[in-house]
Design a protein around this nucleic acid. Sequence first.
DNA 1: ACTGAAAGACACAGACT
DNA 2: AGTCTGTGTCTTTCAGT
Lengths: 164, 164
Amino acid sequence: MPFSPKTENSTNSVVLDAKDLAILQLLQDNARITVKEISEKIHLSTTPVHERIKRMEESGVIRQYVTLLDAEKVRKGLTVICYVSLKQHSKEAGSKFIQSILQMPEVVECYNISGEFDFMLKIVAENMNSYYDFHVNKLGEVDNMGNIQSVFVMGVIKQTHRLV
Amino acid sequence: MPFSPKTENSTNSVVLDAKDLAILQLLQDNARITVKEISEKIHLSTTPVHERIKRMEESGVIRQYVTLLDAEKVRKGLTVICYVSLKQHSKEAGSKFIQSILQMPEVVECYNISGEFDFMLKIVAENMNSYYDFHVNKLGEVDNMGNIQSVFVMGVIKQTHRLV
DNA sequence: ACTGAAAGACACAGACT
DNA sequence: AGTCTGTGTCTTTCAGT
């Protein structure tokens, strides 16, 4: 053996074999699939499947089992991508901005990005009126807020969570 | 909405009472929560909880139960937001572009957007080298491709799927 | 719509190869 | 690392309120 395959930093990489990947692929598409069903599909008994899932949960490869809702049907049919820049870029100013964002249920995603803006936000709202209200009265009122630019999502072409 | 695959002809609004919402809130955070556990938390027996979940699955309010993986740990640590515009904007040209995008596992999200670009894509890759390869050899080679602009995600501030 | 009970299916642990 | 087997728990259905 030229080198040991298990010398990686434990927090950033985990060794996954073909069976682990097969399990993950099934789980990604259906978090409620039974261990029994997985074991039949990958031709194993339930015990090793169960153990592998437990191991991947504990190592953090499996982050969370979530339920996705239909945005339209729960009255969140409008998605807006929002770019914001801050006036001040100190560590403290950034932290305060992040705290505000974390408390806003309309903001479903927020990334620190490269380029002329500091953050990219994904906002969900019921309609244009409620988004406008959010934009002006909540986002626009955040301390230290610089420029805000909105891009409206007109159609969803693809949306997946499959990473492997 | 020239490229938006509007397929649903069913009702866009579904009546949900407080108990339905309570169930959805628990399921959104944990798709593997048991019916028994939900029934205890909202002070109901298992039967009505089970029936309500079934009803919301059938009406499409509940879209999918998915498992989220740790991107770093499955070697997909780089996220890039990518804006593309097409040279031609005919229906056929748009459809061909969409078909290409749907077949690329690196593209995890794609939206038709307002503004100077036509689409926004979210790309996951192992590192900058593999992203560069994707950008040049796959995305750049798509038929009818106009401008491409990449914005790199430097940090994840917030990521949730809670719509209600 | 809900409760309670009951059958069948499943998760999970143990003994073993 | 895997199979098999058993026990306790859960899902799911049904009768009754």
